[in-house]
Structures are given as structure tokens and as C-alpha cells.
């Protein structure tokens, strides 16, 4: 981890498939050591972005830099490894043979026994891959990704199709492994996974980043309440200066105040201004997620 380059630099990435724009000018910078959740609904462009990030797909526009170099170079040097949804395994090899074989493709790897252990599949090393459960196969993919001891680990919805217990085991294995300094990016559409395992959440919708912040910041987007009122000519700056106000948005004659103290704001609006039609709504992470990741209609 002597490099001072960002682990990931995506700049204006764009990818279209026919009339569909899957990724739309997406830019993102990830520093070494960050654990980033790439959170968005199905079809948000997460997988396409990851494919371009890894050099599996060519962007129509924009650039990708991994650890200061090209994705191909990072892959060839074992600096980046990935657990993908679509990467297949050979059914006729055993778990151990799959790891051994893959290990020979690199200049240097961690020992087979060690990565099996870390992925939690040392006990099924002799099992033929075709007889492994989906969760076990996913952990095998994880073991393969651990082999080169990568600086950057990319996981695309790694727990899709796993049951609750399988998901928990998988994340525990990942967390146990998270050695100091390894950068991790994982795509997910599970809020709780992003919340539990990431330092930073990048929300994507329709191929764009719609919110990006620490887990706490993203949660704050959702925490508290929103006070909405009809208030022509609202003084946005004055409202924003009130204690406990996180954000103020003016839409025509309406004003929306996001706050941790909705009572005080409502009292202020009703007693000190000409506001009427005051509404107070609470928001949770789910709402924030939905609000940020679903298409606005009108407005």
C-alpha cells in the first residue's frame, strides 16, 4: 500500500446498449483503504460500471484508472480481484483444484490452504464444484479473489441467492479478511449490507451517482423529518440558519425543511412566518434510498 494513487478513478464513464443508457457520465474516486458500497436498485448500472471498472467492457466514453494504471494491468499484476455474479466455475474440478489451478496463473499468491480457510471452505476442499451449494460456490469465488492478495477487491452483489445465514457467513468471512489497507468495493441492492459493512455509500440510479457519503451521512439523509409548508417568497438562507436544520429546499411556493427537530421548525413556520399547509413526514433509510434511487416524476 505504498501507492499514493487513488484505488479507483472513474471519470465520466458512459455505456449505452442500443437505446438504453446503462451508465451515464459516472464519476467516482475511491481512496486506498476505503470500503465502499455501490448501492442501487436492479438496472441502476452497477454491474455495467463494474464490468468497465475491471476492463471486461469498454466504455463508450470516459476513463478508468485502477491504482494509477489500467484495469488490464491491475488484473495482470494481481492488484485487483473480483467476485462477479456471472463468473462461472468448472463443475468437474474440486474446490481445492479450482484454487490450485487459478493460483498458477499468478506470479505470486497466498497459499491454497490459507485462502480456503479464510473463505470458510477448507472443509470442502475435496468436494466437486458441481455438488457445492450456491453459497459455497460463491465463497469459492471469494477464495479465488483472495489468492493474489489484491489491493482492491470488487464484489458484484456477492450474496445474491444466498439465504440469510449464508449472507451473514459470507460477510463475516469478508470482514475477518479485511486486512488493513485493502480497498473493497461491493455492489448491492440490500440496504442493510451497505449499512453494516461499508464506510462509504455511493447511491446510483439510472447510471448516475445520486448520493455519495459516509454511511453516517447517507443515514442522515434519511434521519429526522421533513417539514413541508406553503410559503411564497420563503427566505431560504434564514430557514437554513435555524438550529437543527439539515437542508432547505424551495420548490415554487413550497418549502421543504429537513431537520432533526421538526417541532421547532413547525412552530417557527407557524408563528414567525405566513406559512400554511404545514406537513411533517418522517423519513427512514428505506425512504431515502427510494427517494434517491427512483425516478422523479414531474418536479
Amino acid at each position: 500500500m505504498t501507492s499514493t494513487h487513488p484505488a479507483v478513478e472513474l471519470d465520466g464513464l458512459t455505456k449505452t446498449f442500443g437505446a438504453v443508457t446503462a451508465v451515464d457520465g459516472l464519476s467516482l474516486r475511491v481512496q486506498p483503504g476505503e470500503v465502499v458500497a455501490f448501492l442501487g436498485p436492479n438496472g441502476a448500472g452497477k454491474t455495467t460500471t463494474i464490468d468497465m471498472l475491471l476492463g471486461l467492457a469498454r466504455p463508450d466514453a470516459g476513463t478508468v484508472r485502477l491504482l494509477g494504471g489500467t484495469p488490464d494491468d491491475a488484473v495482470a499484476r494481481g492488484r485487483v480481484a473480483a467476485v462477479l455474479q456471472t463468473g462461472g466455475l468448472l463443475k468437474d474440478l474440486t474446490v481445492g483444484e479450482t484454487v490450485q489451478m487459478t493460483g498458477h496463473f499468478y506470479r505470486h499468491t497466498r497459499p491454497t490452504a490459507e485462502v480456503l480457510e479464510r473463505a470458510g471452505i477448507a472443509d470442502i476442499a475435496d468436494r466437486v464444484v458441481g455438488r457445492c451449494s450456491g453459497g459455497q460456490q460463491q465463497r469459492l469465488r471469494f477464495a479465488l479473489a483472495l489468492l493474489p492478495d489484491p489491493d482492491l477487491m470488487v464484489l458484484d452483489e456477492p450474496t445474491t441467492g444466498m439465504d440469510v445465514e449464508g449472507r451473514r457467513d459470507f460477510w463475516q468471512a469478508l470482514r475477518r479478511d479485511a486486512r488493513a489497507g485493502r480497498t473493497v468495493i461491493f455492489a448491492t441492492h440490500y440496504l442493510d449490507e451497505a449499512d453494516a459493512y461499508a464506510d462509504r455509500i455511493v447511491l446510483v440510479r439510472q447510471g448516475r451517482v445520486v448520493a455519495d457519503g459516509t454511511t453516517a451521512e447517507i443515514k442522515n439523509l434519511a434521519a429526522g423529518r421533513t417539514v413541508r409548508a406553503t410559503l411564497p417568497g420563503a427566505d431560504q438562507a434564514a430557514l437554513a440558519a435555524l438550529p437543527g436544520v439539515d437542508a432547505v429546499e424551495v420548490r415554487g411556493d413550497s418549502v421543504l425543511v429537513r431537520t432533526g427537530d421538526s417541532d421547532a421548525i413547525a412552530r417557527h413556520l407557524l408563528t414567525r412566518t405566513t406559512a400554511r399547509d404545514v406537513e411533517i413526514t418522517s423519513r427512514n433509510l428505506e425512504d431515502a434510498f427510494l427517494a434517491l434511487t427512483t425516478e422523479h416524476t414531474g418536479a
Binding site: L54, V75, R77, G87, G88, Y106
Partner: peptide, 16 residues
Amino acid sequence: TERALGWSRQLRLTPL
């Protein structure tokens, strides 16, 4: 077979 199973895609994530 290996293309159908997606193994060749997996290999593209290695230095091979």
C-alpha cells in the same frame, strides 16, 4: 463448455 459455464469470463479476471 467452459464458455457456456462462464469460466472463460472468470479467467479474464486473472493474469492468464
